[in-house]
């Protein structure tokens, strides 16, 4: 009797294991197909990152909007997190008010384009009063003015196989290519096409100050500060998973 029970338990356990394994395999296949697997899904940290990213992508499907605030909520002290780059090219552009600055949109696009600051300003503008929080812990509320990234991507014609949008900022002088690459930030298409994702050139009713990312910075409603790349110089649309900042943190950040 016991022997019979043991055999039955053994068969049940075996079947359960096989079912779980194939279930997991199917889950991974569909998760990847529906964009629920982040680029950095490996290792111990990758487990948490994947669970967080997949859960949030399932929750936020349909462009859920970040909280917006009243004009009276705007912080008197918008905290500056580090000074602007001291790169010669950047300083020259800053001195002339970014007249010769151009933001290029490259990669998997039908028509590679570039915009001057004036051209960006002529595109339909939006204002969003949102909370900007640093992963360190501090936060402030500011009004951001800019053009939707979706509008700009539309003008360039994003190819169907695109998966990520990479943002390259101006670097500091004498930075090695590895360090410069470490400044690259990337977001998925869900965030890129989100209605609160702006290429912001204005802050609190004025031109974007140099220390807040002039001439233009990325503004994401649903992310922490570090994903909001300042001092934009180039935008690349790609299907590569490996083009993003690798500074010890995770790609999605979980928040």
């Amino acid at each position: 009797m016991t022997k019979f029970l043991k055999r039955r338990q053994f068969i049940t356990a075996g079947l359960a294991t096989a079912a779980s394994a194939s279930g997991l395999g199917t889950a991974v296949y569909f998760a990847d197909r529906y964009g629920l697997i982040p680029p950095d899904h490996t290792g111990i940290v990758g487990i948490g990152e994947t669970l967080t990213y997949a859960t949030q992508r399932l929750l936020t499907s349909g462009h859920s909007l970040a909280r917006e605030f009243k004009r009276s909520d705007i912080s008197k002290v918008p905290i500056v997190n580090g000074p602007h780059p001291a790169d010669e090219k950047y300083l020259a552009l800053l001195a002339e008010g970014f007249e010769n600055w151009r933001l290029s949109i490259e990669g998997l696009v039908a028509r590679p384009v570039s915009f001057s600051l004036e051209e960006l300003r002529r595109l339909p503008a939006e204002n969003h009063i949102t909370l900007h929080a640093c992963e360190q812990g501090w936060s402030y509320i500011a009004e951001w003015t800019g053009v939707r990234l979706a509008t700009v991507l539309d003008l360039a014609g994003v190819r169907p196989k695109s998966r990520y949008v990479v943002f390259e900022p101006f670097a500091n002088p004498n930075q090695s290519r590895t360090v410069v690459r470490a400044l690259w930030e990337s977001i998925d298409m869900a965030d890129a096409l989100h209605p609160q994702t702006l290429l912001a050139y204005g802050m609190n009713g004025e031109a974007l100050p140099a220390d807040h990312g002039a001439p233009a910075r990325l503004r994401l409603g649903r992310h922490l500060g570090w994903k909001n790349t300042k001092y934009l110089s180039r935008i690349v649309i790609t299907d590569r998973r490996d083009l993003y900042r690798k500074g010890g943190g995770t790609w999605y950040g979980g928040i």
Binding site: I44, V45, I47, G48, E49, L51, T52, E135, Q136, G137, G247, G248, G249, T250, G253, G254, I255
Partner: peptide
């Protein structure tokens, strides 16, 4: 400043 960047991913792992 600094440790928060690489501690947060582990924080999320343990939270899960």
């Amino acid at each position: 400043i600094g440790p928060s960047v690489w501690n947060r991913p582990f924080h999320f792992f343990f939270a899960w």
